Amino acid sequence: MRIGELSKATDVPVPTIKYYLREGLLPTGELSSPNQAAYGEAHVRRLRLIRALIDLAQVPVAQVKEILRSLDDDTESLHDQIGRAHRALTPPRRVTT
């Protein structure tokens, strides 16, 4: 699908998708011509995850990037990936004395 179709499938505006592409949150599509790319179901799933983290969990984009980087890291164990994602999602506890 083209970027416009990806936008319709996910209800994410095209400029927002382009921003996610520039920031490295969303992997680039497969080039079908010099200025067009094709996107698939993996992009739809990734966009839904990004939007859930930002809209529902209120995670800042910088932390979303860290979470996604952790989830994409094949060199870490699943336990470590989940731990990094959890730490990025959980606000630091304040120590009161």
Rank of each mutant, 00 (worst) to 15 (best):
A37C: 09
R93K: 13
L49R: 07
Y20S: 02
T96R: 14
P27H: 08
T75L: 12
T16S: 10
R22F: 06
S7M: 03
E23V: 11
I82H: 09
A38M: 10
L21D: 04
L71G: 02
S32H: 05
E23I: 08
Y19D: 01
I3T: 00
G4P: 01
R69E: 13
E41F: 03
Y39W: 05
H79K: 11
H79L: 06
E41D: 15
A88H: 01
A52T: 11
E23S: 10
L21P: 00
T16N: 06
P15K: 04
K18R: 15
R48C: 02
N35I: 04
H43F: 05
V44H: 03
P15V: 05
Q63Y: 05
D72N: 15
E66P: 00
R84M: 11
V95H: 14
P13T: 06
I54G: 01
S70M: 03
R22P: 00
L6H: 00
L71Q: 11
A37V: 03
G40S: 15
A38G: 05
K65L: 08
D74Q: 13
L6A: 01
V14K: 04
L25M: 11
A37L: 05
V59H: 01
V12E: 00
E76K: 05
L6V: 03
R45A: 14
D11Y: 01
N35G: 01
L89M: 14
Q81N: 08
V14Y: 01
D11K: 07
S70L: 09
R22I: 07
E41T: 12
R51H: 06
Q63I: 02
G40Y: 08
K8V: 06
A9L: 14
G40L: 08
I17V: 11
L31W: 07
D80V: 10
L6M: 10
R87Q: 13
I54Q: 10
I17M: 03
Q63S: 11
H43C: 07
E5Y: 05
E41W: 04
I50K: 01
P60Y: 07
K18V: 07
E5T: 12
R94S: 11
R87D: 14
P34M: 10
L78W: 05
A57G: 12
Y20C: 03
P34S: 12
S7A: 15
P27I: 06
K18Q: 14
R87K: 14
R2Y: 08
G24F: 11
H79N: 08
L25P: 00
R69C: 06
V14C: 04
L49I: 09
L68S: 03
R45M: 08
L47G: 00
S70A: 15
P60S: 07
L47V: 08
R51C: 09
E30V: 11
L49T: 13
S33F: 02
I54A: 12
R2S: 10
E30F: 06
A85R: 04
L31E: 15
T90M: 10
Y19F: 13
P34Y: 09
A62S: 10
R69H: 11
L78C: 05
S7V: 04
L56G: 15
H86T: 14
T96I: 14
D11F: 02
D11C: 02
L71D: 07
Q63M: 08
I50F: 05
D74R: 09
S77H: 05
E66C: 04
V44K: 04
L68M: 11
L78T: 13
L26F: 05
A37K: 03
